[in-house]
């Protein structure tokens, strides 16, 4: 495989633990039956093919089902997020991408099936363990989800004040470094309602970074942003990932930093993704390293990644 990850290093042979066994992704050998109440035809374009990423999965969905009333969102989802990569979860609107993120951090639980983070089942965790597990995550919400009663500085400092014993001076150092990285060093005293949508997203990004999480999730970071700002945010994501990879390797952390970005913006995916999961009708159509996916001959993947109107995906 000739594809390279966001660091510019080849993926194959760059395993976290160096073992070929760890490279195994959720490869499906037999074609799963369609979910209850659905026809085989509806899932005809789901090839369920998973191209190997060369990395172990830090997050795994195993035949996960989730409904809201009569709305079936996840319908037997089996998906992996490989370690140390910038992964994209792509799919048409309303297909369950944000629901996936909420399952990873235990904000939602599956009706059946399992979600595992670093090998541990999230639905089985007692509350205390769940709160501990969540400290491994950083999550950038669609609108940043900054606390409206606090200024930018206090928002970013909040996780440090709650979870560490650092002095105010150390906290200020970290917060200002992160705020400067996202280009908001000059806005530290502003309240969230004084910021533009893009600034709120960047501030949310800074807050998600301060605890140096193993896994960083982005829920539609490009929604509501103009194309230039979307591109700049994409670059920022790549740059921070690269930096965190270097730090993790230098510190020999047990898990390399993993980014998962939920989006339906194809341009972002092309620019940022190391690995792509394409989700439709609550299941993965195909998944694999970006290059493999961009060369896929699956008609749905081709239509979606090209953003064309002709193909299996219609307005229905």
């Amino acid at each position: 495989m000739s594809f390279e990850d966001s660091e510019g290093t080849p993926i194959a042979g760059d395993l976290a633990d160096g073992s070929p066994a760890a490279a195994a992704g959720p490869e499906l050998t037999t074609r799963p039956a369609p979910p209850p109440g659905a026809s085989e035809e509806e899932y005809a374009n789901h090839s369920y093919k998973v191209y190997p990423s060369g990395r172990r999965n830090v997050v795994e969905f195993d035949n996960t089902y989730k409904s809201f009333g009569r709305n079936q969102i996840l319908r037997g989802l089996t998906m992996g997020i490989p370690e140390g990569m910038v992964s994209m979860i792509l799919g048409p609107s309303g297909t369950g991408k944000s629901v996936c993120i909420k399952h990873m951090v235990g904000l939602l639980y599956p009706d059946s099936g399992d979600v595992r983070v670093q090998g541990e089942s999230v639905p089985d965790m007692p509350d205390e363990q769940l709160f501990e597990m969540r400290k491994k995550f950083g999550l950038l919400f669609q609108d940043g989800a900054l606390f409206s009663s606090m200024n930018l500085y206090d928002n970013v400092a909040f996780p440090l004040r709650q979870h560490t014993e650092k002095s105010e001076q150390e906290i200020e150092e970290i917060v200002m470094r992160r705020l400067t990285e996202v280009g908001l060093g000059y806005s530290r005293d502003k309240l969230p309602n004084e910021l533009s949508g893009g600034m709120r997203k960047r501030a949310g990004f800074a807050r998600a970074l301060v605890l140096e999480p193993d896994i960083l999730l982005f829920d539609e970071p490009d929604s509501g942003l103009d194309p230039v700002r979307t591109a700049l945010l994409g670059e920022l994501i790549l740059e921070i990932h690269r930096e965190m990879m270097e730090d993790a390797k230098a510190q020999k952390k047990p898990y390399l930093p993993t980014f998962a970005v939920v989006t339906h913006d194809i341009m972002s995916a092309r620019r940022v993704a190391d690995y792509i999961n394409v989700l439709w009708r609550g299941r993965i159509v195909e998944a694999g390293p970006a290059q493999d996916m961009l060369n896929s001959d699956n008609p749905f993947i081709r239509q979606f990644l090209a953003g064309e109107s002709q193909g299996p995906l219609t307005m229905d």
Partner: peptide, 18 residues
């Protein structure tokens, strides 16, 4: 309620705070 609808409570929970 405003914190709930603007995802601030989810943000708290994700930070490991009940």
């Amino acid at each position: 309620g405003s914190m709930r609808i603007s995802d601030e409570i989810d943000a708290l929970e994700v930070m490991g705070i009940s």
